[in-house]
Design a protein around this nucleic acid. Structure first.
Lengths: 328, 328
DNA sequence: GTGAAAGCGCTAACAA
DNA sequence: TTGTTAGCGCTTTCAC
C-alpha cells in the first residue's frame, strides 16, 4: 500500500489536517509546509482519490460522450477536449453511444455517476429529454443547441453561404444538397443556411441520406445524377467521399462533370481523390472550448450562477480539387 | 443527495450490513433480499462508488491507452474494448499519448491511479520500462509483445506471406516495403515476415517512412518509383493511401503501373481510390479480447497466478482494386 | 441469517 | 497557525 496522509503527518511530526492544508494550499506556516512537501515527496505520497471524493463529493474527472468513436470528426473534438482537460489536470472519460438514443441515456447516467461534469457531443435525444438529463449536473453541449444549456457550435449558415458563393462564382445554378440523418440538429441548421442564401440565383434540390456515412454517399450519388444538378453539397465529408467513390465508378468526372463540396474537413478530405473542397469547422477548438467552459463552470460551482453564453465558432470553406467551373 | 445504504436499510427495516449483503450476493434470507431489492429500487439507490472503492481498494474501472485517438486503426480497437468492458459493466478510461514516450509514462501513471487494470496499445517504451510500468497493476498489451505480460497481437508473418503470394501470383518479382516508424515493434515483425517468405522468387527493397501517416506515404511514393519495384507493401493503410495519392499526382496508374498493398484494413481502405488491397487485422476483436483477458485477470486477482497466455489473431489479405498483374 | 461496530483515507468544522 | 474531532458511505469482521 502506498503512503497515507497519516504516514506523512507522523513523519513530519504534524497532524494529518496540517498535511491536508499544506498540500491543499490552506493557511500553513511556510517552514511547516516546506517540511511537509519534502516528506510527502520522499514517501511518494499520493492522495487517495476515493477518500477525497467521498468527503468532497467531487470525482475530479469529467466525461465526454460522442455518437461514434470511429468517426474522425469526433476524434478531433475529443483531442481538443482531452488536451484542455489535461491542462486542468482532470482525467476525462470518453464513451460513445453507437448513434443510439437509448444507449445515450444509459451512458449519460453512467457517466454522471463517475464525473463532475459532462460534454455532450451531437446528442440525439429531444430538447426536453436532454434538458432533464442535463439537470443531473454541469453540462456543455457541442454541435447542437439545447435551450438553457451552454453550447459550442459552428457557424453553419456562414459555411454554407461561402460554399454557395464559391459554386455561384463557378457558374453553378442548380445544386444538390445531400442531407444528414433525419432529425439531426446540424442538418436542420444547414438547411436553414441553404434556404437563407438567396439572391445568388442558385436553386437547391434535396437528396436524402439516412446516415452520415460513406455508404449513404454512395447511394446518394446516383440520385444526385438524376436531379440535373451540376454541383453537390454533402452533409459531411464522409457522405461526400461516398459520392466521389460512386461517381468514379460510374465514370462521372469530378470536378469536370460535377462539383462536390463536403462539410467538416476531416483528415480524409485531403487524402481522397480528388482532394475534397469542404466547409471546415474548427473541431479541435470546439472540443477544447467546450472543455474550457465546463471546467470554468466547475470552478465556480455554486458561486455565481451567470451561465456561459453559447459560443459560435467560424466555418471556413477550403477549396481543393473537387469543385470547378460548370461546363457547357 | 441520492439515497444511501442507510436510507434503504431504514426503509426496509434491516441493518445496513444486511442491505450490503443482499445487494452484493451474500447469504441473506430470500424474503429479506426481495424486500431490500424492491425498496432499493423504489428509492433509486445507487451505491456510492467512492465509498466502495475506499474500502475495497478497487475502482471498478479499467483504462485504455492508445498512441493516437485520431487514428482509425485505434478507434476500432477502442470500440472492441469498450463493448467488452460495457458487457462487464466496467466504465473504461480512454487516453492517448500523442505518440510520445514521455506522455506515455505520465498517462500510465495517471491511469493507474484511477483504474484497476490497463490496456496498453502499441506502447512505445522499451521492454524494461514497460515491464516496470506494468508492475503497477494488471496489464494487457495490444499490438506488441513484452516479456512477462499477456498480449494480443495479429499474425503479421501470415499476413505478409499472403500478400507476397498474391503479388507473386500476379507476376511481381520486385516489391518495395515502406517501413513503419523506427523502433516500432510491429514494423520489426513485418520485416521478419518479409524476410522469412523466401522461395517465392520475390526480392524485397526497403523504403523508409518516419511516421505511419499519409504524409509519409506521399513522401515514400517518389522513393518507391526509383527502386524499380512493380509493387509496394506499406506498413499501414494510411501510408498506402499517401502513396496512392502521390502516384495519382504523378500520373502513375494503380494497379496498371504499380500495385499497392496496405495493412490493417481501416475503413478508409475501401473508400479511397482505387480501393485498397490490404492485410486485414481483426482490430475490434483484438480490443475485445484484450479487455476480456484483463477482466478475467481482475476477477481472479490473487487467486491462481496462472497467467493468460498471449493471443495471436489471424490476419487476412483482402484483395481489392489496387493490385493487379505486372505489365511487361 | 442478521446486527453492531470498526474503519478505509481524507477533509472540514471547531477549538486552542 | 495548528491539533482534535467527527464523519463522508460503504464493507467486513465478529458476535449473536
Amino acid at each position: 500500500m502506498s503512503a497515507t496522509i497519516t504516514d506523512v503527518a507522523r513523519a513530519a511530526g504534524v497532524s494529518p489536517s496540517t498535511v491536508s492544508r499544506a498540500l491543499g494550499g490552506g493557511p500553513v506556516n511556510d517552514a511547516t509546509r516546506a517540511t511537509i512537501v519534502r516528506v510527502a515527496e520522499e514517501l511518494g505520497y499520493r492522495p487517495n482519490r476515493a477518500a477525497r471524493e467521498l468527503i468532497t463529493g467531487r470525482t475530479g474527472t469529467i466525461g465526454l460522450l460522442v455518437p461514434d468513436l470511429g468517426n474522425p470528426y469526433f476524434s478531433e473534438i475529443i483531442k481538443g477536449a482531452s488536451s484542455r482537460a489535461r491542462a486542468g489536470a482532470l482525467p476525462i472519460f470518453v464513451s460513445d453511444t453507437d448513434e443510439d438514443v437509448a444507449r445515450e441515456r444509459e451512458a449519460i447516467a453512467s457517466l454522471r455517476a463517475t464525473t463532475d461534469g459532462l460534454l455532450l457531443v451531437s446528442p440525439r435525444g429531444s430538447d426536453e429529454e436532454l434538458a432533464a438529463l442535463a439537470a443531473g449536473g454541469p453540462t456543455v453541449v457541442v454541435n447542437r443547441e439545447v435551450p438553457g444549456l451552454p453550447a459550442v457550435i459552428s457557424d453553419a449558415a456562414s459555411g454554407i453561404a461561402q460554399a454557395l458563393q464559391h459554386l455561384g462564382a463557378l457558374g453553378h445554378t442548380r445544386v444538390a444538397y445531400v442531407t444528414g440523418p433525419h432529425g439531426s440538429w446540424s442538418d436542420h441548421r444547414r438547411r436553414e443556411g441553404l434556404a437563407s442564401a438567396t439572391g445568388l440565383g442558385i436553386e437547391i434540390v434535396h437528396v436524402p441520406a439516412a446516415t452520415p456515412t460513406f455508404h449513404s454517399g454512395v447511394l446518394a450519388a446516383d440520385l444526385v445524377l438524376t436531379t440535373g444538378a451540376t454541383a453537390v453539397i454533402a452533409f459531411n465529408d464522409l457522405i461526400a467521399i461516398g459520392v466521389l467513390d460512386r461517381l468514379a465508378a460510374r465514370g462521372v468526372r469530378v470536378p469536370h462533370d460535377l462539383s462536390v463540396v463536403g462539410h467538416d474537413d476531416i483528415a480524409m478530405a485531403s487524402m481522397c481523390s480528388p482532394h475534397l473542397t469542404t466547409i471546415a469547422v474548427p473541431k479541435e477548438r470546439m472540443g477544447s472550448m467546450a472543455a474550457d467552459m465546463l471546467l470554468r463552470t466547475l470552478d465556480r460551482r455554486g458561486a455565481s450562477d451567470d451561465r456561459d453564453p453559447s459560443v459560435l465558432l467560424p466555418s471556413t470553406l477550403i477549396v481543393r480539387d473537387s469543385t470547378g467551373e460548370v461546363k457547357a
